[in-house]
Simulated assay, not measured.
Amino acid sequence: MNTPLFADLAAWIDSVLSAPLPEGIAAFHFNLYDSSTTYDLELVGAPTYDPEDSDWACDDIFMSSSPRFEIASEAVGPDWEAGLQAISQMILRYLDAASAGASRLKAARAVSLGFVDGDLHLVWRAE
């Protein structure tokens, strides 16, 4: 795994989650945008989480401010499936770290990742 890329991603997530968050976030979702040369991430917080409702993350009460975090497509794989898998693994690695940001994410019921016009992929869920 690309260690400098992971370190930059972790720093970005830490920065986003160091700001005050609104009360009532039940789950977090990383929106993934696909351009010709990058994948761009933004983090949203939703007041509800329903694993049976594929639109639960659409009702956000928190959204990370600009700029989105950019990941060069060539750094994570040759196609969108490889990119999604690599980014998911980095987020899971982040969640396993002992950081304040990881603790904030895991205080919610779930963390997911997905392309803005695609399916949500569960990365982590509280037991």
Rank of each mutant, 00 (worst) to 15 (best):
G114M: 00
L43K: 02
P78R: 12
L105K: 00
A72F: 12
A72S: 13
D14M: 03
A46M: 06
H121W: 05
G114R: 02
A100K: 02
P20A: 15
D55A: 11
H121N: 12
F115K: 05
L41G: 03
T38F: 14
R109A: 14
F115E: 06
M90Q: 14
I71T: 08
L92N: 08
L43M: 07
A57V: 01
I13L: 08
L122N: 07
D50F: 10
G101M: 05
P51I: 11
L113V: 10
L84W: 03
L9R: 07
V76D: 07
R104T: 15
G45K: 06
F6A: 15
H121R: 01
L17H: 02
L21E: 10
Y49P: 01
L41N: 04
L105R: 01
V16R: 12
F30P: 00
A82E: 14
V16W: 05
L92K: 14
A46L: 06
R68T: 07
S36E: 11
M90V: 07
R104H: 04
T37K: 13
D79P: 01
E52L: 13
I71G: 05
A102I: 05
D55Y: 12
P67V: 05
F28P: 04
A126P: 04
G77S: 15
D119C: 03
V123S: 01
P22K: 09
L95R: 08
A86V: 07
S112I: 02
D60T: 09
I25S: 00
P78A: 15
S15D: 14
D8S: 10
L120V: 10
T37C: 07
S112R: 03
V111A: 08
W56D: 02
A126R: 11
L17C: 04
I25T: 00
L5H: 09
D34T: 05
Y49N: 02
A98K: 11
F6T: 11
M90Y: 14
G101E: 01
E127K: 09
W80E: 07
D117P: 00
N31I: 03
R125N: 04
M90S: 10
A100S: 06
L92F: 11
T3S: 10
I61V: 13
P20D: 15
S88V: 04
G114I: 06
P22H: 11
W12N: 08
V16H: 02
M63W: 07
A86S: 15
N31Q: 07
L120Q: 09
S15L: 05
A98R: 09
